[in-house]
Design a protein around this nucleic acid. Structure first.
Lengths: 205, 205
DNA sequence: ACGATAAACGAAAGCCTTTCGCTTAAGTCT
DNA sequence: AGACTTAAGCGAAAGGCTTTCGTTTATCGT
C-alpha cells in the first residue's frame, strides 16, 4: 500500500492502543500494537522514534487524564495531598504501566508540571535548599512504590505455612488485595504528611 | 559433549554470573549467562526452571549478603531502621537488579524472614490488626522506591531550560546523583520514622 | 509542473526464551 | 556384572521481539 489519503496512524491512536494493550496484558509490543491499529509494524516508525517514546507518551497521557486542582487559598498540605493522590490515581487506572516506566527519565511536559507544582508546594511549606529535592525524591519514592504495589501480583508475599507466624497473621488479617492496597495508601499518606510536618517543626528555620 | 565428570553448572555459579551481568549491563539473558559460564543455553534448564527462578534466586542472594543484627535490647525504632537500611543496602550494591524484581511474588526464604522481622518490630511498636500490613506496605513502598531511585538514570527529571523554574533550581542545588540519592534516603528515613511515631501517638490504643 | 516530504509496505537482521531429541556418565538394583 | 534410571551436557529450531532499510505513492508548496 502506498501513502493513504488519510493517515491511518496518529500519535493519539497509537498511545490509546498501547495503553489498552498494557491494561490487558501488562506489556505491549510493536507487532501487537500494529495489528490492533491495522497497520504494519514498520509504519509506526513514521510517527514515533521507537518503543521508548511510546512509553513516555503513555506517561504523559495518564497524568493528563488525572488532574488535580491547585487553589491559591489552599495550604501546602492540601496541595501535596492533591498532587500525590492524583499521581497515584493515574497509576491506579493503569496499574500495569508503572513497572514499564521506572527506568525512564521523565521528559513529558505534563509530568514535569506535576513535579514543578510539588516543588512549589514544598517551598511554600518551608523547605529550602537541598531539602526540596530530598522531599521530592521521598514523595516520589512513596508514590512510585504504591503505584507499583497496584501492579504487583495479588499475592505479594507467599510465606510457606510454617515459619513466618507474624507475617502470616498480618496477611490473614488483611482483606482482599485491592482493599489492602487502598488502606495501605491512606495509611502511608498520613505517615508521610505527619513526617513532613515533624521535620518542619524540628529543623532550624 | 556428554555428561561431564564434574558438573559444569551449579546454582551458585549461575546466580553469581547472572548478578555480574545485571551489575554490568542492567539485565541478563540466558545466552549471555551461558557464554559467561562456558556452557550452552539449554543446559541451564537442567538446573533451574527458567529465567524467573534465576531472578528470585538473585533476590535471595543479595538479601543474604546484606545482614542486619537484631538485638533484644533494641527498641523497635532501631530495629526498623536496621531492617530498612539493610534492605536498601542490598539494592545499593546491585542497583540495577531492583527493576527486574518489582513484578515478582516474594518467595525466597531469606527475604520472607526480613518481612517477618519487620512485622515483629511493628507489633512491638504497638501497631495492631490491619495497620501492621499497612505499615509493612508503606515501608516497603519507601524502600522499593529508593532502591529504584538507585537504578534510575542519572538524570531522573529533564526539564527544558524554560518553564519549570522551581524544579530546575531544586535540581541545580543538588550535588551529583549519588549524593542526591544518599541525602534523599536519609531524609526519607527520618520522615518515615517521625510519621510512624506520630501515628502511634494519635491512634487510640 | 515538479521536487520534497510523508506515510504506508515488505523483507531481513539480530536479538531473545524455551522446548525438543540426542548422547553419555554415574548411580542403583538384582 | 549387567541393566535401567537419572542427570547433565549438546545442537537445532520455533516463535517471540525491536529496529533498519529500500520501495512505493499521495500530497503540498513553490
Amino acid at each position: 500500500m502506498a501513502r493513504p489519503l488519510v493517515p491511518l496512524i496518529s500519535i493519539d491512536a497509537l498511545v490509546s492502543a498501547a495503553l489498552e494493550l498494557v491494561d490487558e496484558a501488562g506489556d505491549f509490543s510493536l507487532p501487537k500494537l500494529a495489528k490492533r491499529i491495522g497497520v504494519s509494524q514498520s509504519s509506526i516508525y513514521n510517527h514515533v522514534s521507537g518503543r521508548e517514546e511510546i512509553l513516555e507518551l503513555m506517561r504523559g497521557r495518564i497524568i493528563s487524564e488525572s488532574t488535580y486542582e491547585l487553589d491559591v487559598q489552599q495550604d501546602w498540605e492540601a496541595a501535596l495531598r492533591a498532587i500525590v493522590r492524583s499521581y497515584r490515581d493515574a497509576f491506579a487506572r493503569h496499574p500495569r504501566l508503572a513497572p514499564l516506566l521506572v527506568l525512564q527519565t521523565v521528559q513529558d511536559h505534563q509530568v514535569l508540571g506535576l513535579y514543578e507544582d510539588l516543588a512549589l508546594a514544598l517551598e511554600a511549606a518551608g523547605f529550602h535548599g537541598r531539602d526540596v529535592l530530598s522531599a521530592i525524591s521521598t514523595i516520589d519514592s512513596f508514590a512510585l512504590g504504591f503505584a507499583l504495589d497496584l501492579a504487583a501480583p495479588d499475592v505479594v508475599w507467599a510465606p510457606p505455612q510454617q515459619g513466618f507466624p507474624t507475617l502470616s497473621s498480618a496477611l490473614a488479617n488483611a482483606g482482599p488485595a485491592d482493599e489492602r492496597g487502598e488502606a495501605a495508601f491512606e495509611f502511608g499518606l498520613e505517615i508521610l504528611m505527619a513526617g513532613l510536618h515533624s521535620r518542619l517543626r524540628t529543623t532550624v528555620q
